[in-house]
């Protein structure tokens, strides 16, 4: 297979990106009255997700990447910004929170497959619920068929439907979580570190499943991770986040071959790589690398598919 897909939209879709995020910001307020302070978790972030594209959002913990996923899932309200999905300005038209219609388009897979499945229910329950809530009143027989299909799609045997979450391994549970998201046939899946709690040996299986869903079903994904190598492996586009700012973005392979922003370089050099020949001294975390200092927010185009945030005057 050729994983290096172009980011241009498929033939059956229009030219407009599926998801457009514009100038998204999120402030968290800390403390109470005399000691109030504000933390800007996401600062003026804009990006697109095309039809059938996997976009990776990488960064350290606390960089704001999960906050973006949670805002897109409508679990958090943004402080400012626009979210346009399929031409509809979501924050303006659905002020309160996610409608059923929205949820049938956007689904989320959480980091912890041990916490995201209710231990009191069988696997069948997790997949039947979304089918009943969002589907068109299927007969029990049709429902069974759909369940079977779903399980096959994520690579699980039918007999697993009768099991409880504790009887499944971490990887199997994460597959159930993905099947649950798929049940409503969403256009986009938000995957928040779906492999970080899993054993290394089964991580690849989940990543391959995500790739398969993109290639075969054309599902778009926002893949949140701190693992740059896995982002390079499955994502068409990678975006790097640092302290609330999107500092660099581009075609994954291109970006990681020639990282421009000092923070991207720092992240890349920190990835353990057994095949690295010389030992790399960890770069000192100076202000330039760590805090982009909220520069002008100006983007430099490095190529047609690669841009970086202009770095504020480096500390001399």
């Amino acid at each position: 297979m050729s994983p290096a897909r172009s980011t241009s939209p498929g033939p059956e879709t229009g030219t407009a990106p599926l998801v457009q995020v514009r100038n998204l910001s999120k402030d968290y307020h800390l403390g109470s009255f005399p000691f109030r302070s504000t933390v800007r978790a996401v600062n003026d972030v804009s990006f697109d997700i095309n039809h059938g594209e996997i976009v990776a959002l990488v960064g350290e913990s606390g960089s704001g990447k999960s906050t973006i996923a949670r805002i897109l899932a409508r679990l958090e309200q943004p402080t400012a910004g626009q979210l346009i999905i399929g031409g509809q300005d979501i924050f303006a038209t659905e002020r309160r929170g996610a409608s059923m219609k929205y949820r049938s388009k956007v689904q989320m897979v959480f980091q912890d497959p041990f916490g995201s499945l209710n231990p009191a229910h069988r696997i069948e329950h997790f997949l039947t619920r979304p089918l009943q809530l969002h589907g068109e009143n299927d007969s029990p027989k049709a429902l069974k068929l759909k369940l079977r299909e779903l399980m096959a799609t994520v690579g699980l045997g039918e007999q697993m439907l009768d099991r409880y979450p504790h009887q499944l391994s971490g990887g199997q549970r994460q597959r159930v979580a993905i099947a649950r998201a798929l049940a409503v046939e969403p256009e986009i899946i938000l995957a928040d570190e779906p492999t970080s709690m899993l054993d290394v040996s089964v991580r690849i299986g989940i990543l391959n499943l995500m790739r398969k869903l993109r290639d075969e079903r054309g599902v778009s994904m926002l893949y949140i991770t701190h693992d740059l190598a896995s982002a390079r492996y499955i994502a068409d586009t990678t975006m790097v986040m640092c302290a609330g700012d999107l500092v660099e973005g581009g075609e994954s392979i291109e970006l990681m071959a020639a990282p421009h922003h000092p923070y991207t370089q720092l992240l890349l050099s920190a990835v353990p790589d057994a095949r690295r020949t010389q030992t790399v001294r960890p770069p000192k975390r100076d202000a330039a690398a760590r805090n982009t200092g909220r520069g002008t927010g100006e983007r430099i185009a490095l190529s047609a598919s690669h841009w970086a945030l202009k770095v504020p005057v480096p500390a001399a």
Binding site: M1, P3, A4, G155, S169, G171, Q172, R175, V200, S201, V202, R203, I204, G205, L207, N208, L228, A229, S230, R232, Y233, I253, M256, A257, L268, V271, D273, A274, R275
Partner: peptide, 18 residues
């Protein structure tokens, strides 16, 4: 083979059955 490389072409990895 469970670690995607950071350089070179994108090759399909297999991992282990779950």
């Amino acid at each position: 083979g469970a670690f995607p490389p950071l350089s070179g072409p994108r090759v399909e990895l297999t991992g282990l059955p779950d």
